[in-house]
């Protein structure tokens, strides 16, 4: 990782750039990774709202086991987003490089930038899941 802090050397040595490209080649596929946390959030949102809507329409009330199941799903979603966020934080690698914005456009920069973006998306997804869960705890019944 220290090579990136000496851009002069990196530009002068095309062989090293090729090596970097190979090292971060998986980036082409890993764009998907930054959508993981928002996908979990939206899945959780749909699960909660659809399940409660169906229960209210068919039974007129939300059974306790459904509330419990959705709360368990919330915990699972938060854990999954937490894991995605932690992975993304490691990928951003800000504690090692001290580089917040990764402006250089090299493969490693792109790699770390995607980690940064995924990390921020994980934070907002985490908050989103918490806010979606709150009505489960605070609003009883279907009215």
């Amino acid at each position: 990782m220290s090579a990136r802090h000496d851009p002069q050397r990196r530009r002068d040595r095309p062989a090293e750039r090729d090596e970097e490209r190979r090292a971060f080649r998986e980036e082409a596929e890993s764009l998907v990774r930054i959508t993981a946390a928002p996908t979990i959030w939206s899945g959780h949102f749909l699960l909660c709202y659809c399940a409660v809507a169906i229960a209210c329409a068919k039974a007129g009330a939300v059974p306790g086991w459904l509330t419990g199941g959705l709360l368990a799903a919330s915990v699972a979603a938060l854990a999954a987003i937490g894991w995605v966020g932690w992975r993304a934080f490691r990928q951003w690698n800000v504690t090692d490089t001290g580089d917040f914005s990764n402006p250089e456009g090299e493969a490693e920069d792109r790699h770390e930038f995607l980690g940064h973006a995924a990390f921020l998306l994980a934070i907002i997804s985490f908050i989103g899941v918490v806010y979606v869960t709150m009505p489960l705890l605070l609003v009883e019944g279907c009215r």
């Binding site: 709150m134 605070l138 609003v139 009215r143």
Partner: peptide, 15 residues
Amino acid sequence: GALLGWGLSILPDQR
């Protein structure tokens, strides 16, 4: 979060 929680807690009173 605090505002949402408080708002949700008084919502059932209206029903």
